[in-house]
């Protein structure tokens, strides 16, 4: 087993394995802490697949999902994860909040804090916003995506998907292709996959590739075909509508020609390579339907399933201190 797949977490007693109060990003997590969260999530994958079992460990815990930016999937995933564990889940959408009335983020944070939630899940359109709130509240904060910065639970669910489907993460050649510049999914994934010793390649047109990317320990490519050579995993990113026609790329059809994942292109990857996408997909732009729906190759729906398990693990782990779990109090 390659070194980074070692699991020293098993030998570290109780809460010492995960000393963080919040989960604001993958940056700051040690490899063994990432693996600890993945191992915890494994349990919930099995749990969710079995029927009729019940676990009410978050009974009496109030989980606030504060979403300052629109989201359907991630919000739903966090809500289901909390409810499966018996938490009282309340959702706050930007549309309903006083943010629209000019309240500052700090005031909103202080208000949320005064309501004595036990865990707050935050999504915000500005990089660093979640950290700002985390510094102001007394309970654990979970980052559900902040600007272009981080989306740690997405990286964890992606890592879990890869590990389950490929048997390991270390040594896997993972290609991340698309709008790297504006992608928090790409940033969190680059951090977690390089920490777990995967070989990460990133591929984007120059207009969507951030300067300084090689400092993340990844290899940048402009030619998608070259990047795909021998790939174990191909992770496609969503191209936002507002960036499609002229602002960063000339047109969607030109983007598709150069960076769309087609069955022919996928031939360059390993025969059993895995196809992933954080969703929602632009079918026919970054990915063709036949690839997205491929029964053996596509892991896209499995990613959604892993998302719930990973979020259950994160909610459980982050509330252990407050719940007085033995060894964590």
């Amino acid at each position: 087993m390659p070194p980074s797949d070692h699991r020293p977490a098993a030998q570290i007693p109780g809460g010492a394995v995960f000393p963080h109060r919040h989960l604001t990003g993958i940056a700051g997590l040690e490899p063994h802490q990432i693996l600890f969260l993945l191992d915890e999530a494994e349990h919930w994958v099995d749990f969710n697949r079995g029927r009729g079992k019940s676990d009410r460990r978050l009974e009496g815990i109030t989980q606030i999902n504060a979403f300052f930016e629109n989201s359907t999937r991630t919000l739903l995933s966090f809500e289901i994860a909390g409810k499966k564990l018996g938490a009282d889940v309340v959702n706050m959408h930007a549309g309903q909040s006083s943010v629209k009335k000019g309240e500052t983020l700090i005031d909103t944070a202080v208000t949320l804090n005064a309501m004595r939630g036990d865990v707050i899940v935050i999504r915000h359109s500005s990089s660093g916003a979640v950290q700002l709130i985390a510094d102001k509240v007394g309970c654990p904060v979970l980052n559900a995506g902040d600007g272009w910065h981080e989306h740690p639970t997405q990286a964890l669910l992606d890592a879990l998907t890869i590990r389950r489907r490929r048997g390991a993460i270390a040594g896997q050649r993972v290609v991340i292709c698309g709008d790297i510049l504006h992608s928090r999914v790409a940033r969190s994934n680059m951090l977690s996959l390089t920490a777990l010793a995967a070989e990460v390649r990133v591929c984007a047109p120059a207009t969507l590739m951030p300067v300084g990317i090689e400092r993340m320990g990844v290899t940048p490519f402009k030619d998608f075909d070259a990047a795909l050579e021998g790939a174990d995993v191909v992770m496609m990113l969503r191209l936002q509508n507002e960036r499609m026609s002229g602002a960063f790329i000339p047109s969607t059809r030109e983007y598709h020609m150069r960076y769309g994942l087609t069955p022919e292109r996928l031939e360059r990857a390993k025969p059993d390579a895995l196809v992933m996408h954080p969703g929602p997909m632009n079918r026919g732009v970054e990915i063709t339907s036949s690839v997205a729906d491929h029964p053996e190759r596509s892991a896209i729906t499995e990613q959604v399933e892993m998302g719930v398990a990973v979020r259950m693990a994160c909610l459980d782990v982050l509330t252990r201190r407050a719940r007085g779990v033995e060894g964590w109090a």
Partner: peptide, 15 residues
């Protein structure tokens, strides 16, 4: 300013 810090933090940057 464009560079490693802006890239890691996910901040809009200019060269």
């Amino acid at each position: 300013t464009e560079g490693e810090t802006a890239m890691r933090l996910g901040l809009p940057s200019a060269p």
